[in-house]
């Protein structure tokens, strides 16, 4: 089976610093892959390269066989890549429903003319997709509440719902467990597993090793911008290079 997402020889330099150094990796259809690495390893940079926020210095990124590294973030979203942000970026002054609707709006598009003519079709499609995403994360009861009034944990799900409303093929989650306690992290792990079973391909960037090791099928490890491991969790756990990167052990 061909790769859904493939990253080929990707390099990103910021001035003299090479944040991502010749990384090649891929994610197949319906795969749940974890991306881990110590602080400053370049996880979020790689993430921003995939979603089009930061241009590459070298290399190429393909999604469904299409080269996407020159595309704008909204084009990449239209192709079916939904993302969340490391430091929660919800729309605080909008209701929960309106927050999530933005994902559906992004996918469906909105026009001045169809809005003025009050065309039913586009509005209904957006509404259906929004409700479906709200139901998927269990936020439908809070639909009219202001997003700023949600608890921290609920906001995480709000962000995921907004990305789901895009109806993506690939969901990339940037440190979803950051700031959650053990029980909440467990709940999140079950939720991500359910999404994956529902047919979604997921790339999970995470600090929390336990979460990644417990749910991912394969783990890619970055250290200082380089890929140092790419294997199933059990193998990665025993890899001396990974241990060294995390613990700084001399070998």
């Amino acid at each position: 089976m061909t790769a859904l997402l493939s990253i080929e020889g990707v390099t990103r330099r910021f001035g003299g610093l090479t944040a991502i150094d010749d990384v090649t990796a891929s994610l197949r259809h319906h795969e749940l892959v974890g991306l881990i690495g110590p602080n400053g390893a370049g996880k979020t940079t790689l993430f921003n390269l995939i979603s089009g926020f930061t241009p590459l210095s070298a290399g190429a990124i393909y999604f469904k066989g299409r080269r996407i590294d020159r595309l704008k973030p909204f084009d990449i979203a239209h192709l079916g890549v939904g993302r969340t942000f490391q430091n929660l970026r919800i729309f605080p002054n909008m209701s929960v429903f309106d927050n999530v609707s933005v994902g559906a709006i992004g996918a469906q598009g909105v026009g001045v003319v169809s809005t003025l003519l009050r065309r039913r079709g586009p509005a209904e499609a957006i509404s259906e997709q929004t409700w479906a995403a709200l139901r998927a994360v269990g936020l439908e009861a809070q639909a009219t509440e202001l997003a700023a009034n949600l608890s921290y944990g609920r906001r995480k799900y709000l962000e995921i719902a907004r990305a789901l409303a895009l109806d993506p093929e690939l969901l990339i989650l940037d440190e979803p467990a950051a700031g959650l306690n053990d029980t909440e992290t467990q709940g999140l792990a079950d939720f991500i597993r359910r999404l994956h079973k529902g047919g979604l391909s997921i790339l999970l960037v995470e600090h929390d090793m336990k979460l990644v090791m417990s749910i991912c099928q394969r783990v890619v490890v970055l250290a200082s911008g380089r890929k140092i491991a790419d294997a199933p969790p059990a193998v990665v756990k025993a890899d001396p290079a990974v241990l060294e990167a995390y613990l700084g052990v001399e070998t």
Binding site: S51, F53, K72, P73, F74, A77, H78, G82, R83, F85, R89, F91, P92, N93, M94, D98, S101, V102, G103, I105, G106, A107, G109, V110, G111, V112, T115, P122, A123, I126, R162, A163, L166
Partner: peptide, 24 residues
Amino acid sequence: SYYGNALRALREDDQCAEAMGVET
């Protein structure tokens, strides 16, 4: 309307709106 929602998303966080597929 949903058009207004897209504009509100620009006000709240336009980079994030762009990642959601909104042509900012």
